[in-house]
């Protein structure tokens, strides 16, 4: 009991990440399909999120850790993945003549980045580097709620707040001044399944996709976890009873 109490105390105490400097981050939470011990990703939502990423985000943000083959997790089958990959061009080579060449991507390729390197990305974005989004949902405190809030928290600048050129006002961003211009205004995309295209709905779909990208093995993890915890609960009970029995003659 004491151990448990102290463990929980430590967990609570130490899992609170250091609060970033400047303006307080205002997050809006949402009940995500992937939260909780039985949580799973919503495949339809992830597919829509992937569409939002390609149509809105991919112009500036790379996702270098994601390969096309990984989209099997989104519910696409092999031929669909081949079709998706073939829409992209990747650099390959050198060929037998020693030259680099462009070819259509295959499922084994990782998603090509929009810029050749970080300097090109900065040059194209007012000096700010658009971060790679592969791990973004794990690289920020409360990643899912943070991304969801960030995308829908562009607000009118309050009186007296000075917003320098090239920065934008966003109440979910630490310090409230972000270099990314507002990406979503509502109805930015049209979904073939007829889903909502409000800023909130689109942000939620994108967040679902980015959470998967950061933690693609979550479903397997939780599935094994439920079995492991169930097994260990029984192990705890059995070992406790065995302990009682062995100690019976000492008491």
């Amino acid at each position: 009991m004491l151990k448990r109490t102290i463990t929980i105390l430590l967990l609570v105490l130490l899992s609170s990440p250091a609060v970033a400097a400047g303006g307080e981050v205002e997050l809006r939470s949402r009940s995500w399909s992937f939260s909780g011990p039985f949580g799973t990703y919503d495949k339809a939502s992830m597919q829509r999120g992937f569409q939002v990423y390609t149509e809105v985000c991919a112009g500036c943000h790379s996702m270098k850790l994601i390969a096309f083959r990984n989209f099997i997790d989104l519910g696409y089958n092999e031929s669909e993945i081949k079709a998706i990959a073939s829409q992209y061009e990747v650099k390959d080579g050198p060929n037998d003549d020693g030259d680099m060449f462009l070819r259509a991507a295959i499922p084994a390729d990782r998603m090509p980045a929009p810029y050749a390197n970080d300097n090109a990305a900065r040059a194209g974005n007012n000096g700010a580097l658009p971060p790679d989004l592969s791990l973004i949902a794990k690289a920020r405190p409360n990643g899912a709620d943070y991304l969801y809030s960030l995308l829908s928290s562009y607000k009118d600048v309050p009186d007296g707040k000075d917003v320098p050129e090239g920065l934008y006002y966003n109440t979910a961003y630490p310090g409230h001044l972000i270099a990314m211009p507002q990406p979503l205004y509502g109805d930015d995309v049209s979904f073939s399944d007829g889903s909502e295209t409000t800023i909130e709905a689109v942000s939620a779909d994108l967040t679902q996709f980015l959470m998967w990208a950061a933690e693609p093995k979550m479903e397997a993890r939780k599935r094994i976890g439920v079995a492991a915890v169930f097994f260990l609960c029984i192990f705890v009970i059995v070992s406790y009873l065995a302990k009682r029995r062995v100690w019976a003659d000492v008491h």
Binding site: S15, K222, V236, S239
Partner: peptide
């Protein structure tokens, strides 16, 4: 062994869910 069982249970909860 009983202590180890409790320890592994707590560890599993964190490893698999947090």
């Amino acid at each position: 062994v009983f202590g180890i069982a409790v320890f592994l249970l707590l560890l599993a909860v964190v490893v698999f869910f947090f």
